[in-house]
């Protein structure tokens, strides 16, 4: 089994266009998606969601800016780590994420975690 990091990116503006009910449904579906992964014993780390607009970016010790992420179409909003034998399987797991049922942009980047 290998570990794969899922990096979630969303368009916060697009999410803002969802109704309260739609947002609630998507949150519940996302929760169910993670629980199903855990039920298959494939959840290595349930990770976290990130607070929008809370970031800082350091380009050097002196160049520190507020994170630009909220305004971009692809802002990181969370991560988790799953266990799977192959990246293809990891992709299949990601495909079931409820994000892709909505037409509001966003992406999941899948990266194998190095063991060294």
């Amino acid at each position: 089994m290998k570990d794969f990091l899922f990096i979630f990116r969303v368009d916060y503006a697009g999410m803002g266009r969802l109704s309260a009910e739609e947002l609630q449904n998507v949150a519940a579906a996302a929760k169910g998606w993670i629980e199903n992964i855990a039920a298959q014993n494939k959840l290595a780390d349930k990770g976290n969601r990130l607070i929008p607009g809370s970031g800082k970016v350091l380009r050097s010790k002196d160049i520190i800016t507020d994170g630009p992420y909220v305004e971009t179409k692809e802002a990181i909003n969370g991560y988790l780590i799953i266990k799977s034998a192959t990246i293809e399987e990891a992709v299949d797991i990601a495909k079931n994420n409820p994000l892709f049922k909505l037409n509001i942009g966003g992406s999941i980047e899948i990266r194998e975690v190095s063991t060294i």
């Binding site: 929760k31 629980e35 855990a38 039920a39 298959q40 014993n41 959840l43 349930k46």
Partner: peptide, 18 residues
């Protein structure tokens, strides 16, 4: 059961949860 699964995996919990 979902919370239990997050705390620790076991096949029996996964089955009961299903």
């Amino acid at each position: 059961y979902n919370q239990l699964l997050m705390l620790e995996y076991s096949p029996v919990i996964a089955l009961n949860r299903t």
